[in-house]
């Protein structure tokens, strides 16, 4: 019953749009529902990155802290977006802090479980990587635009 619901939630999320049913049922085995209260950390910089998160509802900020300063918000993520890709690349450590800033519902996907499935089935691995590279590309573009400081005094 719970599996069915999770499968439905995954299927409806933009990240998994048009994913083959056979892959979806493989992935759902690595998934669990999670909920975060405002202010709660989802992961911390330096920790093992063993999951990634499909955001269903709410808002999360990616932050970095420096001594003597308030934490700097790098980016905020919302419903329909994906949090975390450090689970794909060894040695699997988070590079930022992720914190819920609103009550947030998400689905956590177990990175170790998925990595194993991708090793066994490279087609699944390629399918997932294509989806992640799109997100990485978007974030890289956004970072480049951010670096240009377009609205600065010139």
């Amino acid at each position: 019953m719970e599996f069915e619901t999770l499968e439905k939630l995954l299927r409806e999320h933009p990240f998994f749009r048009d994913l083959k049913e056979e892959y979806l049922s493989l992935i759902v085995g690595c998934a669990r529902n999670v909920f975060y209260k405002p202010g709660e950390f989802i992961f911390r910089e330096g920790e093992q990155a063993n999951e990634f998160y499909i955001i269903r509802d709410g808002k999360i900020s990616l932050e970095v802290s420096a001594p003597g300063k308030k934490p700097i918000v790098i980016q905020t993520l919302e419903s329909g977006e994906v949090l975390g890709w450090s689970w794909i690349t060894p040695p699997y450590y988070w590079h930022f802090d992720a914190r819920a800033i609103e009550p947030t519902k998400a689905i956590a996907l177990d990175g170790r479980c998925l990595r194993n499935k991708c090793e066994e089935d490279h087609s699944l691995g390629y399918e997932l990587l294509k989806r992640f590279i799109t997100i990485v590309e978007q974030r890289l573009q956004a970072t480049r635009i951010q670096l240009l400081d377009l609205y600065g005094a010139g």
Binding site: K59, S61, K70, I72, V73, I74, Q75, T76, E78, I101, Q138, Q141, A142, I145, Q146, D149, L150, Y151
Partner: peptide, 16 residues
């Protein structure tokens, strides 16, 4: 583009 303390809204460039 850059959040500050107390900002509860989105952070990220407008294209996102």
């Amino acid at each position: 583009d850059r959040g500050t303390t107390g900002w509860k809204g989105n952070v990220g460039v407008v294209t996102t």
